[in-house]
Write a protein that binds this DNA or RNA. Structure first.
Length: 898
RNA sequence: AGCCGGUUAACUCAGUCUGGUCAGAGUGCCUGUCUUACAAACAGGAAGUCGAAGGUUCGAAUCCUUCACCGGCUACCA
């Protein structure tokens, strides 16, 4: 068979995906086992506006590894893909385009026309990420792809809203909400980020006490809001002000009379101990206002400009202009005590970074405290869902559920799910699943629907159930819910994970997912978060192009839960690994005539050659460990196990040990069997690798002679042969052979020591040597005797003699092996005796050091007394072995000195 | 302010839960090789007092305490 020397990932990447997809291998229906276990994942739906970045690639790889693994294990497996309409993001993107290309705003077009444009945009440009997933090899079921604004999912949203309204958990009312003056919409607390303001100022303003010369000084970071003050609060415990509680202050500039109130919120230690209270423009002040029944004076509007209520002088001014003016006024009035530098945090819109303005307005809210009660109980009582890693996420999640506040649901946007509430002319509200229902309830057709849409996360909260068909009790919902695992980033645990648990528990009575896997964050090489604005992002597609998808995937899988700095060199090393796999397969295929997968491991394992028993034992352990690691979400360990099994055990040793049999020039049943064994082990290794490296494994697997439907997992027996439906290797305990492993280990040690001698004495690789081996132990001797030919090949020896004792010329390089075997390489003329003594001396030093350490430990009576007996015995044996080897080395050195 | 995580070879990271062959891997570096599967490879080698200081223990990278630096999350300190 003709196979190129180097692996070209593109070839494999272009070949297989469309075939897998076309034949329906990604859909759960491919599984014909009626009793199959179910494994399901719903994708965290990427924004339609987005482009693939490393975080997605990481997340998708992990989901695909889990999906492919379970599929190969015979589970009825579903990985459901989809996209999120991403309210604000998408709307802004389309608005920008509109402005740029046609000079229009959304208001110029009107709501209906604008929404048409958004849909057009979505069809044309949206969902790039989803398309890119094919490139990643993601084995998602495209037939079940969902979009949050699909008719079905929209119906689920209305159902959710109506049910919650009927239950009294959703209500409409006035509240102090986060308002983004740029995006012109309300935001939930989770869409606001706190940013440290390093060059902040704290202004100390004096308010005169009515009917007295006294003044009360308040400290504030936002002087302009004083125009809306309706009280000053002090701590009830603060003796400095106790006589003032109940007094009246004259608010400067506006000359409003405001009371001094006592409230526990006030920290007497901070500032002056007196706090100005602006109920209409600050969360805390709002709460205090409620407690003390204070009036709310709105001085800032939705554009972040001062209102008429702020006074004629200020009306229309931007909030920052107003700030300067207020400060100037106070200075004029002699009421500005001081201005101090002060670091504090300000709230920004998480999207556009505009400073949030807390505003009083009428919005829709959801009482999350009530909604979150059951998920919290589920966590406390049953530890559901299980977080991976458990620490710190379980606690983070539970803590959040403990302190829930109302969720501002309404958004003053056009793109999204319109709130299913209608108003009659009298302003009565009718919440209903459809307008028809609302009319019925209202008894009139003269209704106006609420103009607002719902927070994007409202529909996301339903994702696991809505994508499976809820509110209908579909087969999919029955089969695939609850889902097996959610794989996501840590920054949306509250925004999304917790809320999916709330809806799942509420509407399905159980958890949305068994496990929640929180993956790590990928930073740039300087440890900076990758972002568009810093343009330090690494484009996964470029990495795919450069190193191949498989190499990138296996690196990403290894990252798992760790935060890591991205480094191309890791991918490069796995590109090399892919090439190694390619070439190992190339070797097997070039020597495959007469053989096929499955041939050569017949009969009683006791009759097999040592290296065959050994590789099978190693393979069983690898299969056992890889499965265990994947099930424990320890992808790093899984990758390490496969990597070392393939490269070290299979390539470095097994292929070399079996090479003479495999490459024998004469055809024979023995050669066929040797070839068959190599192919068989390779085939198993490809299966182990497949979830991580789907393309190269399929490419090579298809080339192997003897692969057919009989290798598929029984659940897929009617499918055409593909490695992705082959059974995942399961360890056969009876093939684990510790004795064989020990014996090969001694051959490996011998070979390595002789190679070391060759290297240190600068022997040319082509130069043949003679090997004299002495093994006092009969069993070890027999291992070396029967492996003599293989050993000769591995160390390039013309002759290998094995005996009970060593009868080597004085001019030999020597080494003492574990267990007391000795090896000598006669090198007449090449040995410098002094140098050789020195070399052996270094060996002695090493042994002596270890011996001394063991001796110290063993001569400590407390160790011998308290350590487990096995441990002590183990150390004694090591000590004995070292003592023996030291004696042998000493003799050798003495012999050289004669 | 509180809570949490990180700190292991020049670089990127395992190992810490369950203390004793755990001091590891890959990359890089040094030496030698194009040995007919693979130079994207092969063979050999050097390299870390496991952030610091205490403590517990027969024994600590691993458990406890304190500190330092970096990062994150939460918070109503105007």
């Amino acid at each position: 068979m003709e196979i190129p020397k180097a692996y070209d990932p593109k070839l494999a990447e272009e070949q297989h995906y469309s075939r897998w997809e076309a034949r329906g291998y990604f859909a759960p229906e491919i599984n014909h086992d009626p009793d199959a276990h179910v494994y399901s994942i719903v994708i965290p739906p990427p924004n339609v506006t987005g482009n693939l970045h490393m975080g997605h690639a990481l997340q998708h790889t992990i989901m695909d590894v889990l999906t492919r693994y379970h599929r190969m294990r015979g589970y009825r497996t579903l990985w459901l893909p989809g996209e999120d309409h991403a309210g604000i993001s998408t709307q802004i993107q389309v608005e920008k385009k509109l402005k740029k290309e046609e000079g229009l705003t959304r208001h110029d077009l009107g709501r209906e026309k604008f929404l048409e444009r958004v849909w057009e945009w979505k069809e044309k440009y949206g969902g790039e990420i989803i398309k890119q997933m094919r490139r990643e090899g993601a084995s998602v079921d495209w037939s079940r792809k969902r979009f949050t604004m699909d008719e079905g999912l929209s119906r689920a949203v209305r159902e959710f809203f109506v049910k919650m309204y009927e239950k009294g958990w959703i209500y409409r009312g006035e509240g102090l909400i986060n308002w983004c003056p740029k995006d012109q919409t309300a935001l939930s607390d989770l869409e606001v980020e706190k940013v440290e303001k390093k060059d902040g100022k704290l202004y100390y303003l004096q308010y005169p006490v009515k009917g007295s010369e006294r003044r009360v000084t308040v400290a504030t970071t936002r002087p302009e809001t004083m125009l809306g003050d309706t009280a000053v609060a002090v701590s009830p415990k603060d003796e400095r002000y106790s006589d003032l509680v109940g007094a009246t202050l004259l608010l400067p500039i506006v000359n409003r009379e405001i009371p001094v109130v006592a409230d526990d919120f006030v920290d007497p230690e901070f500032g002056t101990g007196a706090v100005k209270v602006t109920p209409a423009h600050d969360q805390n002040d709002y709460a205090m206002g409620q407690r003390h029944d204070l009036p709310q004076v709105k001085v800032i509007d939705s554009q972040a400009r001062m209102t008429a209520e702020a006074g004629a002088e200020f009306e229309g001014l931007d909030r920052y202009e107003a700030r300067d003016k207020v400060v100037a006024k106070f200075e004029e009035l002699g009421l500005l005590e001081k201005v101090a530098d002060y670091e504090f945090s300000i709230s920004q819109c998480a999207r556009c970074r505009t400073v949030i303005e807390p505003l009083l307005s009428v919005q829709w809210f959801l009482k999350q405290a009530a909604f979150g009660r059951k998920p919290l109980e589920l966590m406390r009582e049953k530890h559901q869902p299980r977080f991976v890693p458990e620490n710190p996420y379980e606690k983070v999640y539970a803590n959040w559920l403990e302190g829930l506040y109302d969720w501002t649901l309404s958004r003053q946007l056009w793109w999204g799910h319109r709130i299913p509430a209608w108003y009659d002319e009298a302003g009565n509200v009718f919440v209903a699943r459809t307008e028809t229902d609302a009319r019925k309830a209202a008894g009139t057709h003269e209704l106006t629907q609420d103009p607002d849409v719902l927070d994007t996360w409202f529909s996301s909260a339903l994702w696991p159930i809505s994508t499976l068909g809820w509110p209908d009790e579909t087969e999919d919902l029955k089969t695939f819910y609850p889902t097996s695992v959610l794989v996501t980033a840590r920054d949306i645990i509250f925004l999304w994970v917790a809320r999916m648990m709330m809806t799942g528990v509420e509407f399905k009575g159980e958890r949305a997912f068994d496990d929640v896997f929180i993956h790590g964050t990928i930073f740039d090489k300087h440890g900076q978060r990758m972002s568009k604005s810093k343009s330090n992002g690494v484009d996964p597609l470029e990495v795919f192009d450069k190193y191949g998808v498989d190499a990138t995937r296996i690196v990403l899988a290894s990252i798992g839960t760790t935060d890591t700095r991205w480094n191309d060199t890791q991918v490069e090393s796995y590109r090399n690994f892919a090439n190694k796999i390619w070439n190992a397969a190339r070797f097997c295929l070039m020597n495959s005539e007469g053989a096929r997968v499955g041939l050569g491991f017949e009969g009683d394992p006791k009759t097999w050659a040592l290296h065959d028993r050994w590789i099978m034992s190693r393979l069983q352990k690898a299969a056992r460990d890889v499965s265990a690691s994947i099930e424990a979400y320890d992808f790093h360990a899984a990758v390490q196990t496969i990597y070392h099994f393939f490269w070290d055990d299979f390539c470095d040793w097994y292929i070399e040990l079996s090479k003479s049999d495999v490459t024998a020039t004469e055809a024979s049943p023995a050669r066929d069997a040797a070839r068959g064994r190599a192919l068989t082990v390779l085939e198993q290794a490809l299966r182990l690798l497949h979830p991580f490296m789907p393309f190269i494994t399929e490419e090579l697997w298809q080339k192997l002679p003897g692969v057919g439907s009989e290798l598929l997992h029984p659940a897929y027996k009617d499918a055409e042969p593909t490695v992705m439906l082959a059974g995942y290797p399961q360890a056969r305990e009876e093939l684990i052979d510790e004795r064989a492993e020990g014996e090969i280990a001694s051959i490996i040690e011998l070979v390595s020591r002789v190679r070391n001698i060759r290297s240190e004495l600068n022997l040319k690789p082509g130069e043949q040597v003679r090997l004299l081996i002495a093994a006092p132990d009969a069993a070890v001797r027999s291992v070396f005797e029967s492996g003599a030919q293989q050993i000769a090949r591995l160390v390039r020896a013309s002759q290998v003699s094995v005996g009970e004792s060593l009868d080597a010329p004085r001019a030999s390089a020597r080494a003492v092996l574990a267990g007391g075997a000795e090896v000598a390489v006669p090198l007449e003329g090449l040995i410098d005796f002094a140098q050789e003594r020195e070399r052996l001396g270094r060996e002695q030093d090493k042994l002596q050091k270890e011996g001394a350490r063991l001796e110290a430990q063993l001569s400590n009576p407390q160790f011998v007394e308290r350590a487990p007996a096995e441990k002590v015995e183990e150390l004694r044996q090591r000590r004995a072995d070292i003592a023996q080897r030291t004696r042998q080395l000493t003799q050798t050195v003495e012999a050289l000195s004669e």
